[in-house]
Amino acid sequence: MKTLTLEFIPYGEIENLSSEDRIDKLFKLAKEENIVLLQGKLKPNEEIMLIQKTMENISRKFRGIEICSIDEDKKESAMALNKMKKSFVNLILGNRKGFTIIGPASVIREIKRDPKKIQLLTNIKRNK
């Protein structure tokens, strides 16, 4: 039986890390088939660094990740972008509000998000 591990990372655990170290830490966990639940959000350049690192590591065994960042605001997540644009501080210092889900593509098939709900579709088959 395959165990699915959900690893919670409080923002404080990555707060003092450089962007590279943050990405290394989160990527390593996802590559080891953990689903990471990070308190807060990565900076846009960190998100793109994570995608880049993922692509550099694609192999027969590792097929990539799924990622989804959610804003604390209950209004649609697109508003997060609006806020990001307005709040330069968030771009520089990062954002501990909201949360981010990162998981391996081998476990998470898709993260569906619309303004009101998030659906995490997994590759785990249900026993009948």
Binding site: K43, E47, I51, I67, A80, L91
Partner: peptide, 14 residues
């Protein structure tokens, strides 16, 4: 509302 779309646009904004 996919993360790729949000990440691309977020990076362009930044």
């Amino acid at each position: 509302y996919s993360q790729v779309n949000i990440t691309i646009i977020g990076n362009l904004a930044a």
